[in-house]
Amino acid sequence: MCGELAAGSARLTATEIICALDNCGHPDAADRVLSELASPSGPLAHRGAVMACFRKVNYRHFDQRQLKALVRALHDSSGAGPVGDQVDPLRRHLATVHPEHARALLGRGTNQAPVRPAVRPVDSRLPAAATLLAAAIRRVTSRIRAVEPDGVCDTSVPTALVTEALTCPVFDVRLYAAFLLAATPYRAELADAVAAELARPVTVRHEELAVPLLEALRILGDHRHRDLLQSLAVAPGVPHRVAYAAVRGLGHVAADHPAGDFLRDAVAHHHAAWLRGGDAVSAATLESLVYALGMASRDDLLAEIRAGTDVLPAARTAAARWLDIPGHRRASALL
């Protein structure tokens, strides 16, 4: 049933639906996850499959046939696309749990499963992202003392959550850590600290640094941080995955208060980028923009996308899904 619900490249909840299979030990659930990993019905379902694999590997849900299929899919993956940052951590995680496959996953020179790194390997021409990330974490966590200035309160838990939210290689662990932080008195201070890190030009140049910060801001941020997200979503020279992460935040941070014609301009900007490159990240960015349009109740732009003949088909389908939701349901969901 989960597989049927997730089918369709524009299913808005495909990530959650496929992810729900991570706790199911039935062989059919493992087959469905592997199917979405190797030949995804859409980018959201693909994200769900990658996320589900981490736990299914831990729970030993894959039999030998399925395990070989998983190893083959990860070996053949280029690591490109909107969830490319999860492919290498999954390879390393699988190699740790099943060291007999480490050589196939990590190369001929591998004799044992390596320790999982906190961040992805980075471009050697740039400063080490891991070093920059460690410094960013120190600056962000220092803001916790602004809420507990007397030093009486033990801040080890929120500090650990900040570290998890910004460094864990598993997307949904970062997400859950951010949700926990959002429920604390530290939310506003931490959101401002994360935004301050994203305002640094060096941060934006490093996907490994900017993407987890943007994911955290998507949960912690409010209307004060909307302008920053809008700027990063369309600024020239911003790496594709960084722009994608910023666009994903547009549907969550003050989503019902877009500035002026920004959303129209953003659609035009990313539509042109997709026409030029046609890559998976550009396509996923357009689909995420459709989500932002729906959350902003921009039916005019949704209708234009649905009617466009040269628009990404998945974006057209997603726009049609939004427009098909009865008005009273959409209004109640946005309250």
Score class of each variant (00 low, 15 high):
residue 7 A to Y: 07
residue 17 I to C: 10
residue 20 A to R: 02
residue 21 L to Q: 00
residue 27 P to I: 04
residue 27 P to N: 05
residue 28 D to F: 08
residue 29 A to E: 04
residue 36 E to N: 08
residue 42 G to E: 10
residue 47 R to G: 13
residue 49 A to C: 09
residue 57 V to G: 01
residue 61 H to S: 11
residue 62 F to V: 13
residue 64 Q to P: 08
residue 66 Q to P: 06
residue 71 V to G: 08
residue 77 S to F: 05
residue 77 S to P: 02
residue 81 G to Q: 01
residue 84 G to L: 01
residue 85 D to V: 08
residue 86 Q to M: 13
residue 86 Q to V: 05
residue 91 R to K: 14
residue 98 H to T: 08
residue 99 P to F: 00
residue 101 H to K: 02
residue 104 A to T: 06
residue 108 R to H: 06
residue 116 R to Y: 06
residue 118 A to N: 12
residue 125 R to L: 11
residue 126 L to K: 02
residue 129 A to F: 00
residue 131 T to S: 15
residue 133 L to M: 15
residue 135 A to N: 13
residue 135 A to H: 08
residue 138 R to D: 14
residue 139 R to D: 04
residue 146 A to P: 05
residue 149 P to G: 05
residue 152 V to Q: 13
residue 156 S to A: 14
residue 163 T to W: 09
residue 173 V to C: 07
residue 176 Y to H: 11
residue 180 L to T: 15
residue 183 A to V: 06
residue 186 Y to D: 06
residue 193 A to D: 09
residue 209 L to Q: 14
residue 209 L to C: 09
residue 219 I to V: 15
residue 222 D to R: 09
residue 232 L to H: 07
residue 238 V to L: 03
residue 239 P to Y: 03
residue 240 H to W: 08
residue 241 R to Y: 02
residue 250 L to N: 08
residue 252 H to G: 00
residue 252 H to M: 10
residue 254 A to E: 09
residue 257 H to V: 12
residue 262 F to Q: 05
residue 264 R to G: 11
residue 265 D to V: 10
residue 274 W to N: 01
residue 275 L to N: 06
residue 278 G to D: 07
residue 281 V to T: 04
residue 283 A to D: 00
residue 302 L to K: 01
residue 303 A to T: 12
residue 304 E to Q: 15
residue 310 D to R: 15
residue 310 D to G: 11
residue 313 P to F: 06
residue 314 A to Q: 14
residue 315 A to T: 09
residue 316 R to D: 04
residue 319 A to C: 03
residue 322 W to K: 09
residue 327 G to I: 06
residue 332 S to I: 15
